[in-house]
C-alpha cells in the first residue's frame, strides 16, 4: 500500500516538473503545447474516496498554475475532469468498471484510447476557454483544444505504453 502511495507522489512531482520545465516550452509551430500532467488524473487508481481524488487534482492543477502564472485555469480544468471521470470510466470500460477491477495496464488499447481522448479534450476545452476568456474567440479555443489535445493524447499514449510493464 505504501509503495503505491509513494509511486503516486513521485508521479505527481515528476509530471508537474516535466510539464512546467519541458512541455510548456515546446511551442510546436509557435503555440502548440502538450499538457501532459493530466496523465496523473487519467491513471489515478479507481477508488471510492472521491473527495481525496478531487482534492489532489485541485492541488495538481494549482501547482501547474503557480509555475505557469495562469491564475486558476489548470486547477479548474483538472477538478472538472476529476469530477466527471467515473462517468467516462463506465462509458469506456463498461462492466469491468462496475467491479472496480480496471487496471489501466491490462485494458484494451481501443478502450484506453477512447477514455483518454474524451477526458483530454474536455480538459483542454475548459482550460482554453478559461485561458482565452472571451466568448467571441470560440474558434480559437476550439483550434487550440484540437491541436494541443492531439499532442497531449499522443504523448500520454506513448508514456503509458513505455512504462506499462513496470506499473504496479
Amino acid at each position: 500500500m505504501n509503495n503505491i502511495v509513494f509511486i503516486h507522489i513521485l508521479r505527481f512531482l515528476f509530471l508537474v516538473l516535466f510539464q512546467t520545465i519541458v512541455c510548456s516550452n515546446i511551442n510546436f509551430l509557435g503555440y502548440i503545447n502538450p499538457y501532459i500532467y493530466v496523465l496523473f488524473i487519467l491513471l489515478y487508481p479507481i477508488t471510492n474516496n472521491r473527495l481525496l481524488f478531487i482534492f489532489i487534482s485541485f492541488l495538481l492543477g494549482l501547482s501547474v498554475d503557480v509555475f505557469l502564472d495562469s491564475g486558476g485555469t489548470h486547477a479548474a480544468a483538472s477538478i472538472a475532469i476529476a469530477y466527471i471521470r467515473p462517468l467516462f470510466l463506465k462509458f469506456s470500460f463498461g462492466a469491468v468498471y462496475e467491479y472496480h477491477a480496471v487496471k489501466f495496464s491490462n485494458t484494451d488499447f481501443s478502450q484506453r484510447l477512447v477514455y483518454f481522448l474524451m477526458l483530454i479534450f474536455i480538459h483542454h476545452f475548459i482550460l482554453f476557454s478559461l485561458v482565452v476568456f472571451d466568448q467571441n474567440e470560440l474558434l480559437l479555443i476550439i483550434k487550440q483544444t484540437f491541436y494541443s489535445g492531439i499532442f497531449t493524447l499522443l504523448l500520454c499514449l506513448l508514456l503509458t505504453t513505455l512504462f506499462s510493464n513496470k506499473k504496479t
Binding site: 478531487i54 485541485f58 495562469s70 491564475g71 486558476g72 472538472a80 476529476a82
Partner: peptide
Amino acid sequence: VLFLVLFTCALSLTIQSH
C-alpha cells in the same frame, strides 16, 4: 459540494489573473 467549492476557488483565481 467539494467540487463546487474548489471549482469556484479556481474560477475566482482565474478571473483575478485576468
